[in-house]
Amino acid sequence: MTARTELRRAAVLGSPITHSLSPVLHRAAYAELGLSHWSYDRFEVDEFRLAGFMAKLDSTWAGLSLTMPLKRAIIPLLDDISDTAASVEAVNTVLLTGDGRRLGDNTDIPGMIAALRERGMDKVESAAVLGAGATASSALAALARICTGQVTAYVRSEARAHEMRGWGERLGVDVRTADWDRAHEAFAAPLVIATTPAGTTDSLAGAVTGAPGTLFDVLYDPWPTPLAAAWSRQGGAVVGGLDLLVHQAVLQVEQMTGCTPAPLQAMRNAGERALEAR
């Protein structure tokens, strides 16, 4: 653990941003680590205001967390990005170094893997992905490391199908695509990763029968989603969006502060309390 006494700042940027739990998680970590001189805030910033915001950052800033729609917009404003971020062309973490450099990383991918491993899922023979957005590409990148067989992506258009197959080729994942109307067929897979916006999978909850495998639903508010609730009722294992949020935030805290390990349980407890209060 490193000790610092000078003011250090970090924040999450995005639009909309008022819903973000990142301040709760990072502040809980700072409190547990005794980093009283660290602050973590949230700022409403869209892609049009991003360059102006970045230009105003001074030497007190240590890092930034990024949510939509900034994960790709930030890349031209950085000095370098990690291989992990480059693999999906998405940055959710910016480190501001002492020599003035701005480095981008992606902690969503290792955070997703860590959340699954926490539930005992180190390897899986096949998987299904619901959706085809930015989170779906991160899911494919995570599956590239833990899935030994085919991944089926359920999407709404041929354009999205083409995009997901392209990501599969780039990431070294055997991806086949199927129409969203057949999404209920995904539930036969040992691992299903739902990456769609709130409400999208609600109509699928009634199709969860038998003894399902593991569902990773990246949403965390509202929670549980109808799909996650139905999955649990049938005895399936569920990994939620808060699990992902906490694990990726743990990695951000470690990178920004240099303090390892970050206090995962304290961060999770703070996130759970915040969600219960909503």
Rank of each mutant, 00 (worst) to 15 (best):
158 E>K: 04
15 S>A: 14
52 G>R: 15
210 G>C: 04
102 R>H: 12
167 W>H: 13
204 L>C: 09
193 I>P: 07
249 A>M: 08
78 L>T: 02
111 G>T: 01
91 V>N: 11
167 W>P: 13
265 Q>F: 01
29 A>K: 07
82 S>P: 03
54 M>D: 03
77 L>T: 02
160 R>F: 01
134 A>M: 12
103 L>V: 03
154 Y>H: 13
89 E>I: 00
60 T>G: 11
98 G>R: 12
194 A>K: 01
68 M>T: 05
255 Q>L: 15
231 W>V: 01
266 A>F: 02
33 L>Y: 00
138 S>T: 10
256 M>R: 00
194 A>Q: 14
261 P>E: 06
164 M>G: 04
49 R>D: 14
113 I>C: 09
238 V>M: 12
14 G>C: 09
51 A>V: 00
157 S>F: 05
15 S>K: 05
195 T>F: 05
153 A>V: 09
225 T>Q: 06
104 G>S: 12
275 L>T: 04
180 W>A: 07
21 L>S: 03
149 G>F: 09
47 E>M: 06
41 D>I: 00
28 A>N: 13
188 A>G: 15
6 E>T: 00
91 V>I: 10
97 T>E: 14
39 S>K: 06
182 R>H: 12
126 S>W: 03
122 D>K: 07
173 V>W: 07
225 T>C: 02
40 Y>C: 05
56 K>W: 01
275 L>E: 05
199 G>S: 09
152 T>L: 00
222 P>E: 13
63 G>S: 08
